[in-house]
Nucleic acid binder design. Structure first.
Lengths: 220, 220
DNA sequence: AAAAGTATGTTGAATTTTCAACAAAATGGA
DNA sequence: TCCATTTTGTTGAAAATTCAACATACTTTT
């Protein structure tokens, strides 16, 4: 387990907990390691929502398929980030989303019951874990608000520009790389791929942005 | 303060805390009462995010105005429900939303710093409050997922039907009342009002629903 | 290096949304 | 009750999206 400590220390779930205590906690929490290949379904819609997931290496997408099988990309998770924590914390029966690997990697799964209800050993760090979960969920709520700001736009153009502005702001620079190809970006913005391509072309012609594949630059 | 206990006991923030302790905690938390009239701005976008709000009576809408001044209705809050808790818990500078009263009522404001950082008296119930906040934020995350399910639909018809299905499921009956007039429903679904009216008319003609004002019935 | 497969850009037609304007219905006061 | 105001429904035109089909560019494999 030690080889994961560098990543786990950056994980919001373990904020403020040092390696010594982490080493004691992990077995207490019943942490398991799950290796995965590209395109592997790490978590499938309908599965029990018992586990909190932590990406140790690689990355994955949180998606949902609608009635007709259309994919929506809800978010992207990378190393040290949590997934499915809200469903586990809410103690619902089944997760309403799937998590699909972008590339090979590993995830850690923790039975959330061991965090919410004090474990037999009573490690004394449950309070910190619960506080950390609360902080994480608050931060995720902010991210949801950003996503809603995008989805509330009526046109592909406005959705795209709102997304790119947010990315630039996050990158702290007008030049940035996005974690999506065109189809994925369309599924994230909830728009048609071909219309998205057209719109990117227009913005380029109008001198509003430069782009090459997943690299973008917003001009002035 | 005692007259509010009946409502506060139902508030997710105070779950598992009895009246005796509640009475001790409220002053410790620096709780203030804010009366409001219809259309009053209980919380304004850009304000400090210090406070967690609890609706004691009446109701309000959480809204956001976009660049052009178009209103988005994010959610509806009623008695014993929390608002702005995610922003307070995330300890960001300013709230990105506004909260507007639907009707006269009262709200309680609690300085979130008094919950997150142990207070001088160290009431001993902070752990429970933090646990409750975590639970509340997890539940709100589920609500956000539902909203995203609606917004990810491409047509007004699908957005409307997805919304109505969710409402029927929540009401546990095909007959239910929604908390919106037409313009508000349009601003919640992020669609054009006149198009929404037209679509409701079509669904009625097709025998898919019955409706009168804010009362709906989904047929089979 | 060639071939196969994938991703992206482009186009036109059909559908849908938005927008503006107005009519009808409902509401709230005087 | 009547008047003024607000809300809801309806319509047609303009704009935008979706959809399908295909050309081009790029990757990966053999």
């Amino acid at each position: 387990m030690e080889k994961y400590f560098a990543i786990l220390k950056k994980c919001p779930l373990f904020f403020g907990i040092d390696e010594t205590h982490l080493a004691k906690m992990l077995p207490c929490l019943g942490a398991q390691i799950m290796p995965f290949d590209k395109k592997y379904t790490i978590l499938k819609e309908g599965n029990p929502a018992r586990y909190i997931g932590i990406i140790l290496s690689g990355s994955a997408q949180v998606i949902r398929l609608d009635y007709y099988g259309n994919r929506s990309i809800l978010s992207e998770v990378g190393p040290s980030e949590l997934f499915s924590e809200a469903f586990a914390c809410a103690e619902i029966d089944a997760v309403p989303i799937s998590v699909i690997a972008n590339e090979p990697g590993e995830a850690m799964l923790i039975d959330c019951g061991h965090i919410l209800h004090t474990c037999a050993n009573n490690c004394g760090f449950h309070q910190q874990l619960i506080f950390n979960l609360m902080k994480d969920l608050a931060a995720k709520t902010l991210a949801f608000h950003q996503k809603m700001e995008i989805l509330s736009c009526r046109t592909t153009r406005d959705k795209l520009l709102t997304y790119l502005d947010l990315q630039a702001k996050q990158a702290g620079s007008p030049r940035f790389t996005i974690p999506f190809d065109r189809q994925e970006l369309a599924d994230y913005l909830e728009v048609d791929r071909s219309g998205l391509s057209t719109e990117i072309g227009k913005l380029r012609k109008e001198g509003i942005l430069k782009s090459r594949k997943d690299q973008f630059e917003l001009l002035q």
